[in-house]
Design a protein around this nucleic acid. Sequence first.
DNA 1: CTAGGGTTAG
Length: 761
Amino acid sequence: METSISGLQAKLKKLEKTHICNNYFPTNRGNLLVSGFWLNNFGGRHLSTAEPTHPPPPQAPTSPPPPLSFNPSFVTQVVTLLQTTDTNDWTSNTTLHKLLFLSPQSLSPLSLLRITRGLGSTAKALQFFHYIRTTSPSPPDPLPLSSTFQAIFELASREQPESATKLYELFTSSRDQSIPLSINSATLLIQFFGRAGMVEKSLIVYEELDPDRRNIHKSECPPNERTMDIVLAGLLKRNWSGRRVSEEEIVGLVLKLGEHCVFPNNVWLSQLITRLCRSGKSNKAWEFLHDVRRLGGSVEAASCNALLTGLGREHDYVRMNMLLKEMKEQKIQPDVVTFGILINYLCKLRRVDEALEVFKKMRGNENDEISVEPDVVHYNTLIDGLCKVGRQEEGLGLLEQMKSRHESAPNIVTYNCLIDGFCKAGEIERSHELLDQMYKEGLMPNVITLNTLVDGMCKHGRINSAMDFLNQMRQKGLKTNAITYTVLISAFCNANNIDKAMALFDEMLKTGCSPIAIVYYCLISGLSQAGKVDDASSVASMMKKVGFGLDIVSYNVLISGFCRKNRLEKAYEMLKDLEEAGVKPDSVTYNTLISYFSETGDFRTAHTLMRRMVKDGLVPTVVTYGTLIHAYCLVGNLDEAMKIFTDMSSASRVSPNTVIYNNLIDSLCKNKKVEVALSLMDDMKAKGVKPNTNTYNAMFKGLQEINWLEKALRLMDQMTEQACNPNYITMEVLTDWLSAVNATEKLRNFVQGYEVSTSIA
DNA sequence: CTAGGGTTAG
């Protein structure tokens, strides 16, 4: 067994604290600790049973440290001798006798552990144990014998990994001979029995491990939680014997112990719940927590917090609410973290006002039982929540509150949230002011601050200043990361500067910044949309080479790119690839294909795809219907387009959107069916779908064709009322028409109304 | 992973 020094020291420290009779594998330093422990706890007996032939044991701290208890050459010597001598002759072998019993360090726990292991088989190891017991001139100490048995357990578990019975027999035999169990033996046995489903036997081992058990009345429980701590520590860590015990096995054991009124403390409980949740077993975690409570174990806020976090990650808000209710009913006092989780959960659901309400209430009044002081995390969560719903000014108010109340000082996260809020709102200057404020308060921006600002600047058309800012920050020593590159690459793709995007990608790879999948996704999407679908495809291959998989979004982008280039065979290749990679096509995939086929006039295939879509468990969306309607309009089949339009809202209960109305209105107008188009506008109003500039433009063109001026003027008023801005197309149509009928005054008012509405916006 | 809550990217 390999044990690192630091790990060993940690174990020894624990040993000192827990006062359990164990053998460990002392190093030089560890040995001193063990000796100290030994003297404190068993000193009298140990010293009195010492043979006169032994050199006097260390008596005071000033005496030299005891000899090194583990001597590799000594172990090798003994093992070789044992292996080459017939077992029947061990007793009569004087060399062996001298080596083992006449030197002071020979019977040290570690030596015996190594020697016994060296024998290689359970049978031989047992014979050796018997030999030690019967041949030792003095009654052997229990600790070295514990070590010997530990090695026996190890050998047996390896010889017959399937048979727990053999191991159990060995265990009972050691117990009958009053050999104390070492903690490692106990862990091995508990693990082994737990895995074999013999939880009862694990329990027996556990009870054997408890050194104080004889002094405790049967009715008294729980006996000794510290023992439980050690067992759990052994089980929860990656275990020394190599294999890990599964969470379920541990849960089984803990619950079995629970039936005997032994419970883990809340640190272990929380840790187990966290582990269950992280491995996607929040159901198990839920059951486990409730089982522990049912059995009478104490459940504190921390354990509930762990479960709440896990449930939150799965968006299982129903259970979160249930648990919160249970906490209230069972008078489990929520703590600072519980409130943190609750506030975060409300913020993420965009229920910020409720979150603020909780925040106000958590402080409590004098006569309230619950009173938790808010900390910086609560503030940050709320500020972020406010910013995410566009209430960054209120977020700023909370920042001021933090400063004035001196409860918790703002930190980098506080500022990052606010900077992002103002960036998203397009108020880049305010974000920069916040950055200056940060510096003044002695807070150094980090890479998140940098990325947030760079992204904000890029998204608001300041890509060059973003680059300047980035370089400035780099000079100040700030490191960039893959997200910085993601932000930049997507910005340059959007600005149609693919070369720069590619150059940045190369730079990222060269600087050894470990890329993340999303950088590739950005580039693939940018290249595809720029029509460089072959380049996009090579980036995809590159990505696969470095071990990333394409996701459905990237596949869709590629399929769409190839469809637009009319390269159906490549699109099919992508579909095949997607299937082989085990990625499920989504409605976007189908919509892309349906769009391709319907717009090339192959409505048969388009409808077949729609049926397959449904068979695949997907639901045709508003885009699916819109695509078909658009295509039927293009080929002038207005009847079919209208049929789909009626079907979608009645049969499929998908509400049409503005795009669909616009397509239909435009086609109807072009076919001189202006009345029908107008009735669709009424329909929009009835269904609460807002017309946009394109809707009005289509109508104006149609009305102009039949010269229905009165209606056009009414629509112009309506547009102003709805603060729907005209664009250059609107102006083009109206200017020609209105000036021809001497209604320029009306047009002037209309434009003024537009100016007013933009200045308000 | 360090008991449990907060920030950036298609």
